[in-house]
Design a protein around this nucleic acid. Sequence first.
DNA 1: CGAGAACTTGATTCAACTCAACACTGGTGG
DNA 2: CCACCAGTGTTGAGTTGAATCAAGTTCTCG
Lengths: 243, 243
Amino acid sequence: MSTISCDNCPLRRKDGFLPFKSEEVAFMNRFKTGEMVADSGTQLFMEGARAAQLFTVLSGMGIRYKTLENGRRQVIGFVTPGDFIGLQASVLDAMCHSVEATTPMRLCVFNRSRVFELFQNQPERAFALTHIAAVEEHFLGDALTTVGQRGALEKIGWSLHRFYRRARSLDLHKDNTCPLPFRQQDLADALGLSLVHTNKTLAKLKDRKIAHWSNGILRILDEKALAELSGIDPDNIHQRPLI
Amino acid sequence: MSTISCDNCPLRRKDGFLPFKSEEVAFMNRFKTGEMVADSGTQLFMEGARAAQLFTVLSGMGIRYKTLENGRRQVIGFVTPGDFIGLQASVLDAMCHSVEATTPMRLCVFNRSRVFELFQNQPERAFALTHIAAVEEHFLGDALTTVGQRGALEKIGWSLHRFYRRARSLDLHKDNTCPLPFRQQDLADALGLSLVHTNKTLAKLKDRKIAHWSNGILRILDEKALAELSGIDPDNIHQRPLI
DNA sequence: CGAGAACTTGATTCAACTCAACACTGGTGG
DNA sequence: CCACCAGTGTTGAGTTGAATCAAGTTCTCG
């Protein structure tokens, strides 16, 4: 399988991303050093490690997480196509969380050593990088708010709703369905809930005919009810840059 | 009281910040458009609003927070001298949280409209901005982990420890003491705990002779025990850029 | 001196956790 | 080919950490 040129990048045209100028595309083409395929289960980054390479996800999904002394785990977020991973590594000394592929993934590869080039020669692209960092921060603020202030049903509603909307902006949805290739344990660890309680809460959501998640497929049965539960403003459509 | 020139900025020399090149200082001097003093209680940013001005805190403290439909509040973080506030506003359309002064504050003022200049002409400064965004993201990841995975005693230990270390890097400490000018309610809202439980947990920390917080002053009685509780790696000293 | 904010403390309740089975699946090797 | 196993999901019973409710107390400030 050959490398995709940024000209033909299938992601660039999706709704979820800001448009590129043609010289930006040209630069990205030069900036990109290759592609990588990762099997499910691959560690793309290790918490605390430096990294020479950075990635943009072309396809597949994964999770970002931190591990604690006591063995518990916090899932920081789910990684979907278009996400840039390794920002921490590119700017700070080291990653502050690990990233693992949940499904097989295809990744654009960049060299960390060339990041500063971007700041020197490509103000628009450098701005895009900062933009991405800000979006990330925005997301984490929302997540913190949900984990800190909401009950189990709302937490789960929030994640499912958010994930579904993200999938939709990537054209991964169909009817009211999208892939959600994670374990209940992953969702539990993302929300600070126990596996058992997560399971029971998902069952409640199914009973109430709001959403149904099984076999890696999420089906939204009542989007309005879900939006209400999750407290997400339905019309904040965020486009983000792609790198 | 007259404006401080960046040349003489008292923050720049503190341990917590990365050094400046002299041309960077010169640029900041031009970039800075003025200073502002805010009384305690002032709203510096409103969630969802656009903002024409961005700030760096010269002195004083505040909180960042989000408000929910149901009236609850998540405190996203505490604002201390050297913090840049308004990054979201400068890069995204709008702030995604509010910022309020808890004590009187003195702020450096910048114009949002000139942020792009920074990307065009000052790669080092643009990089610093991205660096700040990444640090922020790092912090939020830690906070999420604490709120999601730890018990009340650990949560509170974590915040106190973290705050104390931050204060120390700003030379705000003395003996084992530093200012902590917030209400117990603020801490509770930061950690997703109830006020009552926060109060009882603080009492426990006092009983165990680990830390004592009253009248806006935090006194660390047993730093080692606190570090253990909070699970913070004691030797990860993060310098951050100042803007 | 009175009123409002912040802080304390005890009693009760409840949401979420843990423990403990059990069911279903796909993969492996005898 | 079937038996077994490991990983994941499901369900019920009992426990617990933190929330809520309800009174104080202390402090500040007009």
